[in-house]
Nucleic acid binder design. Structure first.
Length: 848
RNA sequence: GCCGAAGUGGUGGAAUGGCAGACACGCUAGCUUGAGGUGCUAGUGGGGCGACCCAUGGGGGUUCGAAUCCCCCCUUCGGCACCA
């Protein structure tokens, strides 16, 4: 064995051997229990970044650990390879998106292999291949048959930079999730997936996903946004029609004094009275020009205009002026709001501005004190007792809610209703590099699905990408022109492609049988592997990919293709990889090489250092994994990224920390190399075990095992460091027991640093791969000590430590403690009031 | 504004009711080395000569005992934000 640890040589050697031996190939197994470990597959953007390294290191340790514990582990990898960057690269440099994508895949795959990740590469998939996206199209057709994919005209989010429509989930604070451009509204005819059909089930199962972080579930629940209320009809004065309103506060109905409509409400036209016409129309024009973001900005001043029409409050029979208000959204509820200024802050502000009547209908418990405050300073939105509400007076408002709804139902003018914030998922994208939507438009037959036998609808290669105009596919005559499958007359293909989130909504199923070519996946094989036992990825997909995948899983189940309700049993959302930023007042963000002695090398001005932020190219605080692997090796890179912080927390990059991880592996190397150098290893027979070393071996096994089960990688590595520190100091290095301790060290460390452990494993004479070794078990008896260190407290303060035989009676411990000179000093002249003893741990003497 | 998470040495973090600071980084001293680096040994929360005292964002509480549980406040980060 070499004296010096040469990470590069070792890592290349073992990666080659593992590949040749197909060490990570996995097939279905009837005997072993399955375990499916999955990390979110990457978009092939060019190179992997530290976030990937962290994500995949976590997954790899989990996969290797479970595999050594006897599970049959499915651990696949692939590429989310449709998407805009490929198309943008094509526009800028003229490279075809396919070429760009496949080159990136090839480079990134090499990078992943250099990390020594235990993927079964025979299961690799790429969503941009016709073999994959054929099944996207197939699933689309199935959903369309079931009415879960449909086409409609509606206002949609348009990103002017990406030149495409975005789903609601892909707009973050009014900005495009990808490029942070202000999103605009456009009225377009688009394809939608009916995710709202699953709103209730998606919400319901949030309570059953015990293996998910509560944070993610809360975000999903909020996104679905269920609220229970009522729909109420407000009859329009001098008309037979009524305005339907959704309210979560039917208890305040007696206090409703006017109605607010969204500017887009379909009845607006009919309600405008001649005298108000010009004013109303100019208001609507003005509001429609505002972006949706501006309109949903909570700080925006509430504005409106009177239509001139009235409706009638069904309970009070009072006239209610009908207003159009800028803050009412057509997409939510019915696009019409019954305004109760006394018990809703928005209505309150609106009513004050336009001098509209206010009637208090819920009395706060402390009414006596605040009744003097009239006129009201703000709306009272909490619970109380009903007043000014006819026969409902005196009831508590919670009970009144139900009573009033019942009353409305009896009169046939209202009903209990549930409303959701979740909208259907718009999936049409006006871009080239995506999965074509398999639909045909025929002047005679209308919208016609592409027959299953004609799948896949292949992306044409001859499209010129300019970044201008509408869907690039529309420009390809060859693609667009098609015969109608029904009547044979000339027809046009759909020119939009699917949102790439469609591709990633079921890829985890494809891994089970990646080469299946009669269906998206083999039903039987999927049954063996699904659901994913452990899913790992960034929290940024909390309501994007993770919600879409849940929806797809349920829809696929209802197509009869599986019987799985939820795709991911356990979810780990890892934190971001951060590093401090460096900034020069004149030159902005600086790379480390642009800073010398804390000064900018361009202008010599002092550089501001910190705070730490998520690594990003624009902030110039990234670290290239290639460079770290080149210098320290994959094992060090992996160990550092797992040791520096618990997986769900943000990780602060530290060059010194990497050095520390490297030092640790070097210590492991030297320790084993020295054992070899010493030549003699113990005979093993007839030796008596050293109790301290025996304890240490079992302690390490237990600690690392327990920590790995909980994904506490940082403390597991710390335990291994303690183990090696112990072995460095241990004197009898020629015993077979010491050799056992070394073997245990290598086995326990191997999921984290597989290459060095494999090399050393063979170095100490083992013939089989360390991958095949069973995870060690520990001897509970060895962890029982004969003596226990009992801490003696007096009034809760530490006053002494005594060593006692384990499990002796409290009285005995007290006797020993009280005879301890230090303890007795503290007790002199005091009377003992109480003694608390926790076995083998602590003795607390309470004195007066 | 609402919801959530977090706040512990110079730093990353450990301890989820029982010895606060495991492990690592950094720093200090010594040894090794021609030197630098590496490696090894020892030390390292603050205060005090000391016995000891003080310390887990701040304040209160529960408990024999609180970083940990409860209440109030402060700060930071994340998510949602006119959703009727």
């Amino acid at each position: 064995m070499q004296e010096k640890y040469d990470s590069k040589q070792i890592e290349e050697k073992w990666q080659k051997i593992w590949e040749e031996n197909k060490a990570f190939k996995v097939t279905e197994d009837k005997v072993k229990k399955k375990y499916y470990v999955l990390e979110m597959f990457p978009y092939p953007s060019g190179k992997i970044h530290m976030g990937h390294v962290r994500n995949y290191s976590i997954g790899d340790v989990a996969a290797r650990f479970l595999s050594m514990r006897g599970y049959n582990v499915l651990h696949p990898m692939g590429w989310d390879s449709f998407g805009m960057p490929a198309e943008n690269a094509a526009i800028q440099h003229g490279t075809h998106p396919a070429k760009w994508t496949y080159e990136n895949i090839s480079y990134m795959k090499k990078q992943l292999k250099r990390l020594g990740l235990s993927y079964d590469w025979e299961r690799e998939i790429a969503t941009c291949t016709p073999e994959y996206y054929k099944w996207n199209q197939w699933l689309f057709l199935k959903l369309q048959e079931k009415g879960l994919a449909y086409r409609k005209q509606s206002a949609v989010n348009w990103c002017p930079k990406c030149l495409t429509v975005l789903a609601n989930e892909q707009v973050e604070g009014g900005l495009c999730w990808r490029c942070e451009t202000q999103v605009e509204q456009k009225n377009l005819e688009q394809w939608f997936f009916k995710i709202t059909a699953y709103a209730e089930e998606l919400l319901d199962y949030c309570d059953k996903l015990h293996g998910w972080p509560e944070k993610v579930l809360i975000m999903q629940r909020n996104w679905i946004g269920k609220s229970i209320g009522a729909e109420v009809d407000f009859k329009i004065e001098n008309s037979n029609e009524a305005i339907k309103v959704f309210t979560t506060r039917p208890d305040t109905l007696f206090g409703a004094t006017f109605i607010s409509l969204a500017p887009e409400h379909p009845m607006v036209e009919k309600l405008i009275v001649k005298s108000q016409e010009s004013e109303v129309k100019s208001f609507i024009e003005r509001v429609k020009k505002q972006s949706r973001t501006a309109r949903t900005e909570a700080l925006l001043e509430k504005e409106g205009v009177f239509t001139g029409s009235y409706c009638i409050n069904p309970l009070t029979n009072k006239r209610m002026p009908i207003y159009i208000a800028n803050f009412v959204l057509m997409e939510y509820g019915t696009g019409a709001v019954m305004a109760v200024p006394t018990h809703d802050q928005r209505d309150f502000e609106f009513a004050k501005k336009y001098n509209l009547p206010m009637i208090v209908v819920i009395q706060p418990p402390n009414w006596g004190q605040i009744s003097n405050l009239s006129p009201l300073q703000e709306a009272y939105v909490d619970d109380g007792i009903m007043v000014n509400s006819g026969t409902f007076n005196g009831m508590n408002n919670r009970d009144a809610m139900e009573a009033i709804v019942r009353h409305l139902e009896e009169k046939g003018i209202g009903k209990k209703t549930i409303s959701y914030k979740l909208r259907d998922w718009g999936i049409s994208r006006q871009r080239y590099w995506g999965c074509p939507i398999p639909m045909i438009y025929c002047d005679s037959c209308g919208v016609v699905p592409v027959p299953y036998k004609d799948l896949p609808v292949v992306l044409p290669e001859d499209v010129k990408l300019t970044g201008e105009g509408a869907s690039p596919l529309a420009q390809s005559e060859k693609f667009i022109k098609v015969k109608c499958p029904k009547c044979g007359k000339p027809a046009r293909r759909e020119a939009d492609t699917m949102d790439t989130f469609v591709d990633s909504s079921w890829y985890f199923l494809r891994y089970a049988s990646p080469r299946e070519n009669n269906s998206p996946f083999s039903k039987e094989v999927v049954k063996c592997w699904m659901p994913v036992d452990q899913y790992i990825g960034g929290v940024e997909h909390a309501v994007l990919h993770l919600l879409y995948s849940r929806f797809f899983t349920k829809a696929i189940r209802d197509l009869g293709l599986t019987d799985i309700d939820e795709p991911f049993t356990n979810l780990l959302t890892q934190g971001m990889v951060c590093k401090e930023i460096m900034k020069c007042k004149e030159h902005g963000y600086l790379l480390p090489e642009e800073v010398r002695d804390k000064k900018c090398i361009k202008c010599g001005k002092p550089v501001e250092i910190g705070p730490t932020e998520k690594m990003s190219k624009s902030k110039k605080n990234t670290i290239d994994p290639d460079k770290i692997i080149e210098r320290y090796g994959a094992d060090t890179t992996r160990v550092f990224s797992l040791f520096a912080a618990p997986p769900e927390k943000d990780l602060d990059w530290s060059d010194e920390g990497v050095e520390g991880a490297y030092r640790f592996l070097n210590r492991v190397w030297r320790l084993v190399a020295e054992m070899q150098g010493a030549g003699g290893r113990g005979q093993g027979s007839g030796e008596t075990k050293n109790p301290e070393l025996n304890y240490e071996i079992n302690r390490a096994v237990k600690k690392v095992t327990d920590d790995l089960k909980e994904f506490h990688f940082n403390t597991a590595i710390a335990a291994l460091m303690e183990h090696i520190n112990f072995l460095y100091k241990y004197e009898d290095k020629n015993s077979s027991q010491y050799e056992e301790a070394i073997e245990i060290l290598l086995v326990l460390l191997s999921p984290f640093a597989p290459h060095i452990c494999e090399e050393l494993w063979h170095g100490i004479g083992k013939k089989d791969s360390i991958l095949k070794v069973d995870w060690p078990s520990y001897d509970e008896a060895a962890l029982k000590k004969e003596e226990a260190l009992v801490v003696v407290q007096i009034n809760g303060k530490l006053r002494g430590r005594i060593s006692v035989p384990v499990n002796i009676q409290q009285a005995e411990v007290e006797k020993i403690a009280l005879s301890d000179s230090k303890v007795s000093e503290w007790l002199a002249g005091k009377s003992i009031k109480k003694v608390v003893y926790v076995q083998n741990k602590i003795l607390n003497v309470v004195v007066g």
